[in-house]
Design a protein around this nucleic acid. Structure first.
Lengths: 196, 196
DNA sequence: CGATTATGAAACGTTGACGTTTCGTAGCGA
DNA sequence: TCGCTACGAAACGTCAACGTTTCATAATCG
């Protein structure tokens, strides 16, 4: 068996490879947050990661592939599962979490770059939209269930209500200088979903 | 009187100057829509405008100044005044207009670039946020008046309701592959502002 | 018409990033 | 321990954009 084939089949490949991928992807996300999509450079990523530029080209064919991989990894931070409480309480917890993520997390930091990248690159646009649709599903389902159970008013359209709630949070992040404060979650829910 | 001073005081300066500024700013907006903020180039603007690169540098000191001016001009398209109808009808007209603008207008085309630019450049961020706050005021005032007149439920927070409505429209533009359709305006208002 | 001035085209030197290659080193697995 | 391989550093040629300068042309204004 040739050495190369052996490596490919090996369940424990050289740990240096995984380590390089990790630090490079992390540095790529930093670069996307700082420089954005259009001004992203491989050389800056290499410097951030403390890695030779050649190492990056050993793992990715070109700049766009690295950017796409970085965004993909970004979207593997999934929301926590929520189990206890009334629909209104669950919804409040979701909104607080989204507000936190939009403000501080790698996702929040890279969001403007991601929006810009999605506008320029069809592949990034596809998985950005796909991921957002997936991430929204539990919220829509929760609202629909709350309507069915009588916790929310029957006139609500679950999908539009979810877009209004999430939209308000992202609007504040992207279009104003006062990001949505998690403490406002109750007030936002009261406005969109009715009081009580 | 020196020739230079004469020009500065002249109420009708050389029309070639105004014409150059116009075509260059228009081309800069095209470039921002196509390339985005980070990949914006002066040479591409010159080519689009059918203008010598030197002409651009005669009017703006550098790339950032041109970009800032282009965005500034973008925001001089103000919303139309709305006079007739119930608060709910006026609100629907506003949302339909915002949906149209977000989708098709120069503003909508440049929105991802503007969001990205605002994240990188403090000066652009300031006037982006300032303009958005100004543009939102009539909507907030309309909602507040509607609450006072009994056309909208009293539990609403006018500012949050406006952000939820506008947020939903921008959310659809930036995070999904189905931009908000003006025909949905009634349904969105019914969900956020209550039925009837 | 004549003086002025903005313009387009072109060439300039400089910088920075792309993506490649080479080479010596150090970590890995057997 | 020994062969293998991934690594960092550095240098490479190429190209594109920056911002500048020059020059002949053409529009403007008096």
């Amino acid at each position: 068996m040739a050495a190369a084939a052996k490596r490919a089949a090996d369940p424990r490949p050289d740990p240096r490879i995984a380590r390089s991928r990790q630090v490079i992807l992390a540095a790529a996300l930093e670069e996307l947050g700082d420089a954005g999509y259009g001004a992203f450079t491989i050389e800056s990523v290499a410097a951030r990661a403390g890695v030779g530029k050649a190492t990056i080209y050993r793992h990715w064919p070109d700049k766009l592939a690295l950017i796409a991989d970085a965004f993909r990894q970004l979207q593997e931070e999934r929301d926590p599962e929520l189990v206890t409480g009334t629909p209104r309480e669950k919804l409040k917890r979701i909104l607080r979490h989204v507000a936190d993520v939009a403000a501080d997390s790698p996702f929040g930091v890279c969001l403007p770059a991601l929006i810009d990248a999605a506008e320029r690159d069809p592949a990034i646009r596809r998985f950005h939209h796909r991921f957002q649709a997936e991430a929204r599903k539990p919220t829509v389902a929760l609202i629909a269930a709350g309507i069915a159970s009588g916790d929310f008013p029957p006139h609500l359209d679950a999908e539009l209500a979810a877009q209004a709630l999430l939209g308000a949070v992202f609007f504040r992040r992207l279009m104003t200088d006062k990001p949505f404060d998690p403490a406002e979650a109750g007030a936002l829910i009261a406005t969109v979903m009715g009081p009580r």
